[in-house]
């Protein structure tokens, strides 16, 4: 089982879920390039300008570790990254678990992604120009702070470390992506976990994904919000167990 985190966090996102499967599966967690403890120098703006770049990494990780019949569990944007990986290397993947997936965040004709283009622009602007939300919580943890060792020590065990510059690019890729056309090409059996009251990926979006992915099952979670893997790990674990 390979667990992939979404935009905004790192592999810690799975800390309450992944261990539950360690007895029965080989469990792999990783940080996307730019997040957590990944090698920031490996970031290539061209490669990672599309979700395919991240999907290629997933395939590379599976190949490197000699995995087969992979159950890929992806949160948020990583649900689509897993979908792209499974389309590229169908032989590797047995099934996909998508937690809060969205193939497109921006509304379109006959499609409700949940956000208007100006709203996403506002988000990207606030990432590009207004760094604040970011720097306040994230930057010190990532940058380290040679002048303030006390600060660094306090933050060494911080979660969800993200490089701000890479996060900006990742936000752009995530929130402007459109993978609707890829969904029908997914051959792996797929579980969609839909949180209630998830503003990032609404129920309508979850239902859209279910309708488009041929061999898929949709499960509504009682847990609210976009991160049921943290807010209701037992429910998420039970749903995944039931599926696999």
């Amino acid at each position: 089982m390979v667990f992939a985190h979404g935009f905004g966090c790192d592999q810690n996102m799975w800390r309450l879920v992944a261990p539950a499967f360690e007895a029965d599966y080989k469990v792999v967690v990783f940080d996307h390039v730019g997040a957590g403890h990944s090698d920031l120098s490996a970031y290539d703006p061209v490669k990672y300008a599309s979700l395919q770049g991240y999907a290629d990494d997933v395939v590379a990780i599976c190949r490197e570790l000699g995995l087969s019949e992979v159950i890929f569990v992806g949160h948020s944007v990583s649900a689509m990254i897993g979908a792209l990986a499974s389309i590229k290397a169908p032989d590797l993947f047995d099934s996909l678990v998508m937690v809060g997936p969205s193939p497109r965040y921006i509304d379109d004709t006959d499609y409700t992604g949940g956000f208007t283009a100006p709203q996403i622009d506002e988000l990207l602007d606030s990432l590009a120009d207004n760094h604040m939300g970011w720097s306040a919580a994230m930057a010190p943890a990532i940058m380290g702070n040679p002048d303030r060792p006390d600060l660094a020590a306090e933050l060494t065990d911080s979660f969800c470390r993200t490089d701000p510059a890479i996060a900006k690019a990742f936000a752009r890729v995530t929130f402007t992506s459109d993978n609707r056309a890829d969904l029908p090409n997914i051959t792996a059996r797929t579980l969609i976990l839909q949180g209630s009251d998830d503003i990032i990926a609404s129920e309508r979006v979850g239902e859209y994904v279910h309708a488009q992915v041929p061999n898929s099952r949709l499960v509504y979670l009682k847990a609210s919000g976009h991160c049921p893997n943290l807010s209701a790990p037992e429910e998420v674990i039970a749903a995944i167990r039931d599926f696999v």
């Binding site: 979404g6 935009f7 905004g8 966090c9 996102m13 948020s76 956000f115 709203q119 506002e122 988000l123 602007d125 606030s126 939300g133 919580a137 994230m138 979660f159 969800c160 929130f175 503003i199 990032i200 919000g225 976009h226 991160c227 943290l230 807010s231």
Partner: peptide
């Protein structure tokens, strides 16, 4: 909206 996306993806976790 930008702040709420931020909140959901960063600070809530």
């Amino acid at each position: 909206v930008a702040g709420s996306i931020f909140y959901e993806t960063h600070f809530a976790p």
